[in-house]
């Protein structure tokens, strides 16, 4: 097992290196530059813009810039943002808690909805409940989050005036009031993300349970006279959820990606909104770092999914 993980990690290294090279070259070839805003400002002489370009090393050849970036990265230096002139790792660390809170809560919400609904629907396939659940699941994952986000803002913030649509990390209140305010502003983004995830999870849970519930050992358990609840919880769900667990792990990077748009809509100061503002400002070091973090997340969660799968299902062995 230890050997297996080590081997996987070693294999991951070249792929991360490849990803970083492609990202870097793509960003270097992409049009735009971080000092575009200076261009139309008549108070900043062109020489200053030129000096800044030289100082930040933008005019060097791509290959040299990549090697420089790589060397610094290996020493733990992520570079600094052109826009705010502070270190990128600091910038990202400031954003991580918020993103984790929003993404984490939305995942919990998604599972809290998907598990009971999926299992119940599978126990009574093609019943009215199953059909309603299916319909909602289809609607849920057909509607993109940027649409549902705006829809919720329109209904709850503008028409009803119940919820704020600007997310603030620092709420000027203490105690219960603080929690209440925080809860109020988090409802919309978390439900947008959570329900979108819940829709696809529900479909997945349902089919996984449906696969297991017809197997002979379940019939055996029933014929032993065990009550239905025990059969479902102890025998069916336990086995059916193995693929679901891996699915959740594999979905995690995608959820971070989905949060980019949602963060922008609700002005949540997470990694996603950092990425968007960095792209708009052509702040290459930040774009590079954030996309690279996303790439790492994909690699890590893939590994995690494989490990968890084998741990849950002893039939799988690591070689």
């Amino acid at each position: 097992m230890g050997k297996y993980i080590l081997r996987r990690l070693i294999i991951a290294l070249p792929s991360l290196l490849g990803i970083s090279l492609i990202l870097f070259v793509l960003l270097a070839l992409a049009p735009g530059d971080p000092f575009g805003e200076l261009a139309t400002n008549s108070n900043v002489p062109p020489e200053v813009r030129e000096a800044l370009r030289v100082k930040f090393g933008i005019d060097d050849p791509i290959f040299i810039r990549y090697l420089r970036w790589l060397a610094a990265m290996l020493q733990g230096d992520w570079g600094f943002s052109f826009a705010s002139r502070i270190n990128v790792d600091q910038l990202i660390l400031q954003r991580v808690p918020t993103t984790l809170f929003v993404v984490g809560s939305s995942q919990i919400l998604a599972l809290a909805v998907a598990l009971p609904v999926g299992v119940y629907a599978a126990m009574r396939p093609y019943s009215i409940f199953d059909q309603i659940a299916n319909t909602f699941a289809f609607i849920g994952f057909s509607l993109p989050t940027f649409f549902t986000g705006l829809l919720l803002i329109l209904i709850f913030s503008i028409n009803l005036g119940w919820l704020p649509f600007v997310y603030r990390v620092d709420i000027p209140a203490t105690g219960w009031l603080w929690h209440w305010e925080y809860f109020k502003q988090a409802i919309m983004p978390i439900s947008v993300l959570g329900l979108f995830q819940a829709a696809s999870y529900t479909r997945y849970v349902r089919s996984a349970v449906l696969d297991v519930i017809r197997l002979d050992y379940v019939t055996t358990a029933r014929s032993k006279g065990l009550n239905e609840g025990k059969v479902v919880i102890k025998h069916v769900v336990r086995n059916a959820l193995i693929p679901v667990v891996t699915l959740v792990a594999l979905q995690m990077p995608a959820v971070f990606g989905g949060a980019i748009v949602t963060e922008q809509i609700f002005r949540i100061p997470g990694i996603g909104s950092l990425l968007i503002s960095a792209i708009l400002a052509n702040d290459t070091p930040v774009i590079m770092a954030v996309t690279f973090v996303f790439a790492c997340l994909v690699v890590i969660f893939n590994l995690l999914a494989d490990i968890i799968y084998g741990w849950l299902d002893p039939r799988i062995s690591y070689r």
Partner: peptide, 25 residues
């Protein structure tokens, strides 16, 4: 982001002005 960039290699920036007429603020 292209139009207003100071990229010397991109012919589409407003300062290259490889065009007959252009408009900006």
């Amino acid at each position: 982001s292209v139009f207003f960039s100071s990229d010397a290699a991109n012919p589409d920036t407003y300062t290259h002005f490889y065009c007959d007429a252009q408009m900006y603020n």
